[in-house]
Write a protein that binds this DNA or RNA. Structure first.
Lengths: 154, 154
DNA sequence: TTAAATGCAAAGGGTTTGCACCGGA
DNA sequence: TCCGGTGCAAACCCTTTGCATTTAA
């Protein structure tokens, strides 16, 4: 009883149980990931790790991200700009809504996605992976402000 | 009357009316784009242009794609792998459905997307840009075959 | 002890840019 | 003629890889 442990301890144990190691660099990345809200690119994660430990090297970060993804701790997807993005795997899967005009991003939770997920399942037998969905368009403010999407400039 | 012209002629005229020029390189790219079904990455377009004209250079292709996007002839989005993709702007906007297991891709047409588009509009006031939507998941065959999505490997 | 992990430095791949020359209109 | 386009080559950015060294267990 009382198996409450910090996420650092949890991760450490999961790594060890697989014969993998708990290192200072991995701890740093974990700290950064926990603090990260939403999605972060690999490059950003490297930056943030450097803020904590200036000696951080990209290769270590990327290799650790691979490991963490295998463990299901993080998941990578692709943002509206096509750049690879990581996020701490949320308790609940969610997609993203991205405004092409103001750059704002919102989460699409499972409740909101139910209709979508169900319609693809029923019509196509297609199982949507919500965490990989990014819907681009114009948010309420921008669309009522009559903003255009980028790319139509002179 | 009788304003029917080949798309090459149409494009040529649109370019000229803007003070831009109709060049052999642009013609080559147009030919490639017309032949392209679905989505193509920039790099693929460069390849295909080279097949027609081995002297094709990447910079010209990318610069022309920018011009064509301004004209609304092509549009770029991002595929399931996050790579930038172009497609000839279809008469009808459509999104994409991508199977993470078999790599298959299908179009989501406006009819099918109506529910999605409407629900975001009603709940959020968000105007979805269907051509930027890529929904990832498992297609009927793959999900019934019990395939896993990549990334969960050991 | 010993295999995993790190750090470095270099490679890689697609896209972009600077600049001199070329060529449509 | 004149400005837009082209080609080349180098720059860029992020990510990956090889290899010798370090270090967790």
């Amino acid at each position: 009883m009382m198996s409450s442990a910090s996420s650092a301890e949890q991760l450490r144990d999961r790594l060890r149980s697989r014969g993998l190691r708990w290192t200072p660099q991995r701890r740093t990345l974990l700290v950064v990931l926990e603090a990260a809200q939403g999605h972060v690119t690999g490059a950003e994660l490297v930056e943030r790790c450097r803020a904590i430990d200036p000696a951080t090297t990209p290769s270590t970060v990327y290799r650790t991200l691979d490991v963490l993804e295998d463990l299901g701790i993080v998941q990578h997807g692709h943002g509206a700009d096509g750049r690879e993005e990581f996020h701490v795997r949320p308790e609940q899967e969610h997609g993203h809504l991205h405004c092409a005009a103001c750059g704002g991003t919102w989460e699409i939770d499972e409740r909101e996605a139910t209709t979508i997920v169900n319609s693809f399942r029923e019509e196509r037998g297609f199982e949507v992976d919500l965490s990989h969905v990014t819907v681009v368009g114009l948010c309420r403010e921008c669309s009522s402000a009559g903003n255009q999407q980028p790319g139509s400039s002179a």
